[in-house]
């Protein structure tokens, strides 16, 4: 049992790498070069390495966001929208507060947390009030707000000087400090790790963690024994959406410096796979985020060096996604078959 628990994510990762290698090797004209850049590129110098870690930061946040919702047995499929829209609103606020103070950075993060939290809270409320599945409603609300965000970036908040749909640049002072210059790595990495560890601790040692687990495993049992199941669901959704949005804001404060149309490019959705890959264990999320970031950076470096199409990485991500969800579903049915008397 326990060794299967450890083995199957590793199996997934290995299979993903193999598929990746086969596709790259088959499509490229210089297969050896391509594979070398793809797999070793991210480790070839500190700049690439730092960038890979930086690329894992948003995934750590969205992975944690997915994990929080899963921990209470609810699904938040609106991560992409919460990540994107929460960060855009945060950026707009950041443009109009006095900068170069720690408090204003914090304030901006709180704002995006609330915006993202409200989006996900809305779908939780729809579930409780009308019985709508939060799976569908969170996804749809998320999609709607991606378009609202696009509109804001294209219209009222667009920087007239910029060539693409984006806001003005934020003041340097409000951004997050870099860790490994000249790479993109910034303190957001540390913030993300800390949040994961805090949530890990909360799950193991707090009243809230016990209630999350119990509600997830048997809501009826929880209710009968006086746990306010609905409150837990609302809380989990709120935290999940909030953390996703903070992830987006951290990405803007740390890397982009302004909100650019489409800057989320799938980081929200990938959070779900990041969390599932390590079976929703918050203490391991940084590893699985790193794995996804590794694929991404490898693909980028390979496309830079030997002109492979960068879409290949999306393909591999898709395959990993299928593998982890398939495994997730398989585990469920296996568990249901077990019986007691």
């Amino acid at each position: 049992m326990t060794h299967r628990k450890v083995l199957s994510p590793i199996f997934t990762v290995v299979v993903a790498f193999l598929i990746c290698a086969v596709i790259l090797g088959a499509t490229s004209r210089q297969p050896r070069e391509t594979l070398r850049w793809f797999f070793l590129g991210p480790f070839s110098n500190l700049y690439y390495f730092g960038n890979m870690l930086a690329a894992s930061v948003p995934l750590i946040f969205t992975g944690l966001a997915a994990c929080i919702a899963f921990s209470a047995g609810v699904f938040n499929l609106g991560l992409e929208g919460q990540y994107y829209f929460g960060a855009i609103v945060g950026t707009i606020i950041a443009l109009s507060v006095p900068t170069s103070r720690l408090s204003s950075t914090l304030f901006v993060l709180v704002v995006s947390f609330s915006v993202g939290g409200l989006l996900s809270l809305a779908s939780a409320l729809l579930k409780l009030e009308f019985g709508f599945s939060e799976l569908i409603s969170s996804f749809m609300i998320g999609q709607i707000f991606i378009y609202v965000g696009d509109f804001m970036l294209n219209g009222p908040f667009r920087d007239p000087e910029a060539a693409l749909a984006a806001t003005r640049y934020l003041d340097e002072g409000i951004g997050l400090a870099k860790i490994l210059p000249p790479s993109n790595l910034h303190v957001g990495y540390v913030i993300g790790l800390t949040l994961c560890l805090v949530f890990h601790f909360v799950r193991k040692h707090s009243v809230m963690g016990y209630e999350f687990k119990t509600v997830k495993e048997n809501p009826r049992f929880a209710k009968i024994h006086g746990i306010k199941v609905e409150k837990i669901w609302l809380l989990a959704m709120l935290l999940s959406g909030g953390v996703a949005a903070v992830g987006g804001m951290v990405e803007i404060l740390g890397v982009y410096g302004r909100a650019v149309r489409g800057f989320s490019h799938g980081n929200g959705f990938n959070g779900i796979a990041v969390s599932l890959l390590v079976r929703n264990d918050p203490a391991l999320i940084f590893l699985s985020a790193l794995f996804f970031a590794y694929l991404e950076s490898g693909g980028e470096i390979a496309s830079l060096m030997v002109q492979t199409p960068p879409e290949i990485v999306r393909l591999v991500q898709g395959i990993v996604f299928c593998l982890v969800t398939a495994e997730f579903l398989f585990r469920r049915s296996e568990r249901d078959a077990d019986s007691v008397a």
Partner: peptide, 8 residues
């Protein structure tokens, strides 16, 4: 189903 959380 009600008196126990069988997963726990």
């Amino acid at each position: 189903k009600e008196a126990l959380n069988l997963e726990g």
